[in-house]
Design a protein around this nucleic acid. Structure first.
Length: 565
DNA sequence: GCCGTTTTCGGCCCGACTGTTTTCAGTCG
């Protein structure tokens, strides 16, 4: 997949042109970059077919440039622009608070070329001395850097999940493997993943390892042996493949799934019985194997219920497994509808009909259409009249539809004081009202808490959308007393969203668990802006499961009839 | 540089917020 490379070069070209005060071209490059970035298929395949020029936003000039990037990995036009400003503009502008102008200013004043440079001058207090910047900007950049660093070298759960599925498919196609499974933090559903751990069995481990290192997109082979091989792919992700004998597969899966703390607790339990647990199996005092080929057998012999990977953080799961009180976690199939969907009425990429068809195609019984309220022209939100028209349109649509019901809804903006930016009369007419914070993220804890308590107490609000507004690796969560908000939400029957967008996963597992403890219901929403985004639901389920959520905790596990009053 | 159900030329997303200023520039959504 060269999509990210192409997008990155196009984005940077857009910024460089903008810095040269070139009019309109930057938007054109940015649009093309977005299209390539959100493409499901590899751009090189489209180039091979010649269909890349059919993409929206890609005209003759950019089409030629995409071919050049795919074929050479470079773009001359971009390289030339870069001679004037030889800095890692793409990386620098990923930092919250740094845009192209600030990056250029920092280069001119302090010679900042990279994230390393940026961190150095920020820590040295040099940014506040630059004319046009100040102490606040310096602090914001330091916060932004800390946020960026947390995910450095890690990829989002959604990215890792897609990558693992793709890799496993390709490896299996080689015919060299028996079982293959992803282990590690991906299997536990963590929000970001460092190295991707794959576990496999093979009749001929050397041939299997060869199949891995000879994959087309391998950039570097870090290790190449019959038991363990490691590669780095061209997208920068490291893959560790461990090949184990079939009789050890379950023990190895347990061991390499972790977490470390969970494994330590499990090993202590084995030791207490006079046994030994390692990646090869569970062994008794004489060294005879008690379990090994199946993971479930390990737990069984240790007198524990099998523990879902999402719970393996040594955070009470072993005690519950011993007592037989583990929750029956919610599953993908339990969810009957999506409660957060956008269309091209606001900033979605697809029309109402297309989104509904896609939702029905994946078996949803209902979806709520929750477009943005007009807030900034740019995201093309709905004005009151648009909301009324959409309600009418959905009513008409529902008359013709079979097999799915479309609920009316809105994603309204929570204003600074905790009120919404849509009149009560309209809110009252809608089936689903999501209230989301899209501005004033940095209010002090007390004010933010009061704001969110007020909005969950609003009789018209059904769901608090992406409650913390964090974006993984980009923007920190807002500062608030979550337990106070959950308590108010429970009292007023307002649900907390588990937003399944891979960059959000908000609430996260830890807060989900606290919300449930407070008696709050969860609303799973994909925040889909295009039909393929319904796939995000899987990630939302993983996140809810990390928060110990059961089917009964999830609002949209209910049929439409029970969902609505 | 792209695009078109008023256009193949002439448009092209813009308002809020923040931090830096003394009336505005940059970033974000």
């Amino acid at each position: 997949m060269k999509n990210r490379l192409v997008a990155r070069i196009l984005y940077e070209t857009a910024d460089l042109l903008a810095l040269d005060d070139v009019a309109f071209k930057p938007q054109a490059y940015r649009r093309a970059a977005q299209v390539v970035e959100s493409l499901a298929a590899p751009i090189e395949e489209l180039v091979a077919e010649g269909t890349h020029s059919d993409l929206p936003g890609v005209g003759p000039a950019i089409a030629k440039k995409i071919v050049e990037i795919v074929e050479t990995g470079h773009l001359k036009y971009h390289d030339e622009l870069k001679t004037k400003l030889p800095i890692d503009l793409f990386a620098l502008t990923q930092v919250d608070g740094v845009g192209p102008k600030t990056a250029k200013l920092l280069y001119d004043a302090l010679g900042v070329c990279s994230l390393v440079d940026l961190e150095r001058v920020a820590r040295a207090g040099k940014i506040r001395a630059v004319k046009g910047l100040g102490a606040k900007t310096e602090e914001k950049i330091l916060r932004g850097l800390a946020e960026t660093r947390q995910v450095e070298g890690r990829v989002l759960l959604g990215t890792a999940d897609d990558l693992a599925n793709d890799l496993i498919g390709r490896l299996q196609a080689s015919g060299r493997f028996g079982r293959i499974e992803a282990a590690g933090s991906l299997r536990r559903g963590r929000e970001t993943i460092g190295d991707l751990d794959l576990l496999a069995t093979a009749d001929d481990p050397r041939a299997a390892a060869d199949a891995l290192v000879s994959l087309a997109d391998v950039e570097e082979v870090l290790a190449h042996g019959p038991k363990k091989s490691s590669i780095r792919l061209s997208n920068g992700v490291q893959i560790d493949l461990r090949i184990v004998p079939p009789e050890s597969f379950g023990a190895a899966l347990q061991y390499f799934t972790g977490s470390k703390a969970h494994n330590i607790a499990l090993r202590k339990r084995a030791v207490a019985k006079g046994w030994k647990l390692n990646e090869y199996g569970l062994f008794d005092e004489r060294g005879d194997v008690l379990a090994g080929s199946e993971e479930a057998d390990i737990y069984d012999r240790l007198e524990l219920r099998w523990i879902p990977p999402e719970l393996r953080e040594d955070d009470g799961e072993i005690q519950h497994a011993e007592a037989g009180t583990l929750p029956q976690l919610v599953e993908l199939g339990d969810v009957r509808g999506d409660l957060h969907v956008h269309t091209d009425w606001s900033d979605g990429k697809a029309g109402l009909g297309e989104m509904v068809d896609a939702a029905r195609g994946r078996g949803f019984e209902y979806i709520a259409i929750t477009d943005h309220v007009k807030f900034a022209e740019v995201i093309g939100g709905l004005a009151s009249d648009d909301v009324r028209r959409q309600i009418d349109e959905i009513a008409r649509l529902n008359e013709t539809l079979e097999g799915i019901r479309v609920l009316t809804g809105i994603e309204a903006n929570v204003q600074e004081d905790g009120t919404l930016d849509l009149p009560d009369e309209l809110l009252a007419r809608l089936d689903v009202v999501i209230a989301s914070v899209h501005s004033a993220f940095r209010q002090a804890k007390g004010r933010m808490t009061a704001r969110l308590v007020r909005v969950v107490e609003d009789e018209h609000v059904d769901i608090l959308g992406h409650p913390t507004t964090r974006k993984i690796g980009e923007r920190p969560a807002v500062d608030a007393e979550w337990d106070a908000i959950f308590e108010a939400a429970a009292k007023h029957g307002t649900a907390m969203e588990v937003n399944a967008n891979p960059i959000r996963l908000d609430l996260n597992g830890e807060l989900v668990r606290r919300a449930i403890a407070a008696g709050v219901k969860l609303a799973l929403g994909t925040d889909a802006h295009a039909p393929e985004h319904f796939d995000f639901l899987r990630l939302g389920i993983l996140t809810a499961r990390r928060g110990w959520a059961t089917k009964g905790d999830v609002l949209n596990a209910l049929p439409a009839g029970k969902l609505l009053p």
